[in-house]
Amino acid sequence: MNDVVAAVLVGIFGITGSLIMLASAIAMFRVRDALSRINAFSPATGLGMPFIVIAAYVYDLHSSGFSWGSLLMAVVALLCLIIVSSVASNTLSRSAVLSGQPIHRKTSPNRLAQPPAGVIDEAERSED
């Protein structure tokens, strides 16, 4: 791989990944509640960080040649980023809901607060 191709690939992946991280950081300011912030953060871990890992791997491939060890590290890092970030987001959002964080008032419909029509038995409720 010659120098120009390596530099262009590293640049494309590194800068795109950084811009995605920046975009999701700004998106976290544009939304209003904890759940939406956890939600708007997922491009950073799902796409931005993998791009930066790919950029680092291409740089490593160019500077020190191919080795199975660094390929294994890159693949494990990519898989772990995707799996860990989704499980961590699940845990964060569950604990945000269970700890009673306020949910933005314009969240509509909010099925955690309002069940669909027909689920609550109106006759039974009026007896209470």
Binding site: I38, S42, I83, S86, S89, N90, S93, R94
Partner: peptide, 14 residues
Amino acid sequence: ASSITITPGTLVTA
């Protein structure tokens, strides 16, 4: 649940 959460814009809450 993991697939829903990793997709940006959707998040499993409960």
